[in-house]
Each structure stands twice: as C-alpha cells, then as structure tokens.
Nucleic acid binder design. Structure first.
Length: 492
RNA sequence: CGGGAGGUAGUUCAGCCCGGUAGAACACCUGGUUUGGGACCAGGGGGUCGCAGGUUCGAAUCCUGUCCUCCCGACCA
C-alpha cells in the first residue's frame, strides 16, 4: 500500500484526505456520505469528549439523552428553524419491509406500513428537546435547566468531506432554559468561552471568538456566537457555535414558567454544540507532509516505544527494560504504547507513527541500555535527543508540555500573520486571492452587501469579533459608513 | 443537484480502445536470515471484475440502467 502523503502545497484536498486515511483516523464507508471512524480516531474523539464533558460538568451541566426521531409536526413549530433544516433531512416514511414477491431474496418497503406522520432523523434536537422541556418546566424553581447530550445527527449534505462535513456525525448539543434573557445570554457566552478554552488549551488551536451576521446565524437563533479557526491553506473553519435562542423555541413549544410574582413567562433558551468536525480542524491545523501531528493532551497515546533488537537475547533484555520504563511513564500519567510487533522493522514503525501523529517516540536498543539512555524523538519538530533512563518520565512529561505549547504557538503565529486589514476593494480581493486568511475590513452592516461580496469573491463574514475595537470607516464594498471592522475569509 | 474522473485481490492500480482461461506491486500466511529511518530469500493463500439488465457462441472489456466514491461547482445552523 502506498504510504506516501500528497504534499500540502500540491493538492490540499488530497493532502487532507491522505492524512485522515493514512493516519488511521477514519475510512470511507459504503453508505452515502458517511464514514467509519476507526479505533485510533475514535479514541481521539473520546479524549476530546472527556475533556469537554468535564468542562460542561464544571459549569453546572448534566447529560441526558433524547430520541433520534423527530415527528414532522415538532420540527415545523419554529418556522425559521424548520426552513433552515428542511432541505437536508432524512425522512422515515415506513416502518416495515417485506420479501419482494416478484423477486425472491430481495426486500421491498411494505406499502401497508406507511406512517401517518413522517419521522425526521434529527438534524439537531431543539424540537424534540423543547417538546420535552414543556413538561419539565413549571416554576422559576425549575430553572435554569442545564442539559447536554452526546449524540449522532444526520444532515443530508450534497457534498461530503471526511470529518468536515459527513451525512452523519457525532457531536454534543447543550440545551438550556433560563428565567431571564440576561442569564441566557450569559450562558451562551460562557459556553463559547468553554469552547475557546478547549480549542486553545487542548487542541492547541487558536480561535477567534465572535458573533455571526444575521445571514450566517443558526436557524431559529437570535444571536449566534462562534469560534473561528484558520487552516493551513488560508481558509477559515467554524469550530463551534453557541446560540442565544431568545424565546423563539419557548413560544413555539409553549414552554412557560411561573415567576416569583406568580406570573406566567416564556423561558429563555440557549443551544451550543461542537462536533467531530473538530477532528478535521485538528488535522488541517497541525499536520505536515509526513502525516498527522496530534496535540499531546488529546492524542490517543502520547508516547510510542519502538524496540530495536538484534536476536532473541537482546529482545528479552529490551522487553524487560521497556517494562520498567512503561511503569515509570504510566505512573507519571503518560499514555504509552509499546510496539514490539515482530513483523515490522524499526524504520517502518518510525514512519507509521509519524503518519499517526504520535507526539513522542522512544527508540530503545541494546546500545542504549548499555549507555543508560533512550533515543527520544518529538513529532512536531522531528528533533531527536538522548535522555537518561533515570528521571525519564519527568523529562518526557516536560517534553509533552513543550510540544503542546509549541503547536499552539506555531498555529498562533501563522494565524496572527494571516489577519490582514484591507482598506480598498482591490486590496480586499487581492488579499483573498493571493494571501488568504482573515481579511479585516469595514462593512456597512447589510445583508445585501454581504451577499454581493460573497457572489464576487466567495468570501463570507466569518464573524464580528467580540470586544471588537470601534473604528469609524467606510464599507469596503459600498463605501457607506461603518463603525467597526469584521473578519472575512473563504471558509469550509 | 450540474460538470469531470473513477469502482478489478486487504490496499494502490494495470488490463477495456480492438470481446477469447484474471494480472502486478505492496499487504497477508509458512520457513529462514534480519532489525539504529519504510529489510531480503524461498514457498503459499486470496478476486461472483460495484450491482442489474442487454448484445454475443463467448463480456472485466461493447450498450442501457442503477448504486457508491473522489475532484470542481451549487448547497452547507
């Protein structure tokens, strides 16, 4: 099998696919638009889940699970929401198959099993959840309701890409209900902060926090907050969103509570989510032409040990030495894999674990045992160093921290170098075409202008950064007055 | 959903134009030699040629339909 990775500079799309496939994260599947997440990729996702889940719980949330199917009538209730998702829903219309009488050995939909009301495979769970919340919320004492669910959702996209846009994907969706608007807005902002912290501290992925323009807003939301990341090809990727839903869903599903003054009020809502798309972001942000580079904090395993042995006697010696090293590393909280598979030689394994992005590789041969050192290689810089066996865990721990920090710094430097102000329309177009990245420019605040710019350049407003500096200027396109700059970019 | 390319062994692909017994490399299995950056020798196993029709004495190859994948576009809270 070819293990060569397409060069990033030659064909970015192919480079990305190679990374995912050859890095062992996922495979294409025989089912339209869906993918198989392999154990290595799923372990990565589990590590991400663990970190996020802890952050959710630390901010007072609990997990629950709601049904996969949404009756059509539920989805219809919030109009904007319904329209936004209508075009990409998988619909269950029948509940039974039967043997095809005209053709033995094949099955057909039993026409007698037609459902009176279609069931939609959830593209998101607001509808089902708000229908439930109606029964759970009666008084202000029931609020706030802070619930998250880990689930799969289905969106029938026309064109799919591994992790970035698949027909079915895994995610978490938080759905909260509050007594006041302020409290709900604070919740939406808090969760955006959680996402940003996760992206930066765990994934080593610098992100920009901001709000979406009305055009890019979630269907049914009053305000959509987002974190935007920059990929190595200069395109932006929406990495997570948090929505202030106002009272839209409360009104659509008639969710009211009795306040302290004994008056009925509609509750205020938020929803927020991140998905396996984050894995795509990770892949595109940190990898090189040798393969993936995974941040130590979420890597499926942080260290791989490769033995280099000549003959069975050495093998026994090395196995014994590695055993003590592994105990040392594990005691320090480091996850480690020992690959003493006989089939592959060291050189093959070196290349393989580089493809998989394992942060640190330790090679140990008889020579090393004699000298009381191990050869330690870091994936991010490919630098090799010698480390004594004594206190190895402490040094490796330090190295892992260093790699985590270095990945962030590198991505941050690249990102910061790719936020460029543009003051004229020509400059704006030139920047998008030649340099890529975020272009910071004045915008007159209208959807019409936003649409026109998209039509002419394919660039969209990624976000209006939070805490944006006020600055008087003129719209890059229409020349009308503007009070602040917004970030444009080509996006995934 | 439009345009393009494809689907043949576990993987990557050749064979198709011009119909005539199913191929290569890598991977896998056995034995041996090896092991510090993708080892070598010898032997071996493995494919209803995506699926369904049609043409033909005969179809991986020609025709029609269909499903799936990739790339570009449209679409994408």
């Amino acid at each position: 099998m070819s293990k060569e990775i397409t060069s990033r500079s030659e064909d970015y799309a192919q480079w990305y696919n190679d990374l995912v496939l050859k890095g062992g994260l996922a495979d294409y599947s025989a089912v339209r638009g869906c993918m198989v997440i392999k154990p290595y990729g799923y372990t990565l996702w589990e590590n991400m889940q663990d970190a996020l889940d802890k952050m959710f719980k630390d901010t007072g949330h609990v997990n629950a699970y709601f049904p996969l199917f949404v009756p059509r009538s539920f989805l219809e209730k919030e109009e904007g929401h319904a329209e936004g998702f209508a075009k990409e829903c998988a619909v269950v219309t029948h509940y039974r198959l039967k043997v095809n009488p005209d053709k033995k050995g094949t099955l057909m939909v039993d026409p007698d099993s037609k459902l009176e009301e279609e069931l939609i495979v959830r593209p998101t769970s607001e509808a089902v959840i708000w229908n439930t919340y109606k029964d759970w919320i009666q008084s202000y004492r029931d609020l706030p309701l802070l619930i998250n669910q880990w689930a799969n959702v289905v969106r029938w996209e026309m064109r799919t890409r591994l992790f970035l846009r698949t027909a079915e994907f895994l995610w978490q969706e938080g759905h909260t209900a509050h007594a006041t608007s302020d409290e709900a807005i604070a919740e939406a902002e808090q969760m955006l902060g959680v996402y940003a912290e996760f992206a930066e501290n765990w994934m080593a992925l610098p992100v920009i926090k901001g709000v979406k323009t009305p055009n890019e807003r979630f269907a049914g939301a009053v305000e959509t907050y987002c974190i935007e990341a920059l990929m190595q090809d200069g395109k932006a990727l929406q990495a997570g969103t948090s929505h202030f839903l106002g009272q839209n869903f409360a009104k659509a599903f008639d969710v009211k509570f009795l306040n302290k003054e004994n008056k009925q009020e509609h509750v205020w809502a938020t929803s927020w989510g991140v998905s396996t798309r984050l894995i795509g972001a990770l892949v595109m942000a940190h990898s090189d032409d040798s393969g993936l580079i995974l941040p130590p904090k979420i890597a499926p395993f942080q260290v791989v040990i490769v033995p280099i042995s000549k003959g069975d006697e050495q093998k026994v010696l090395i196995d014994a030495k590695v055993k003590t090293i592994m105990e040392q590393l594990k005691a320090a909280g480091i996850t480690v894999k020992y690959d003493n598979n006989d089939n592959a030689r060291p050189g093959w394994k070196f290349a393989e674990y580089e493809l998989k992005g394992v942060p640190v590789r330790i090679a140990i041969g008889a020579r090393d045992i004699e000298n009381n050192v191990a050869e330690v290689a870091r994936r991010d810089t490919k630098e090799k160093m010698s480390m004594g066996f004594d206190g190895l865990a402490v040094q490796v721990k330090k190295l892992l921290d260093d790699i985590q920090q270095n990945l962030y710094n590198k991505a941050r430097t690249y990102r910061d170098a790719h936020i460029t102000p543009a003051n004229t329309w020509d400059e704006f177009k030139k920047l998008l075409e030649e340099k890529g990245g975020f272009v910071s420019a004045h915008w007159d605040g209208t959807s019409e202008t936003e649409d026109k710019i998209k039509e002419e350049t394919k660039a969209t407003i990624r976000c209006i950064p939070l805490n944006n500096a006020r600055e008087d200027g003129k719209c890059i396109y229409s020349g009308k007055p503007s009070k602040e700059r917004v970030l444009f970019a080509l996006a995934y």
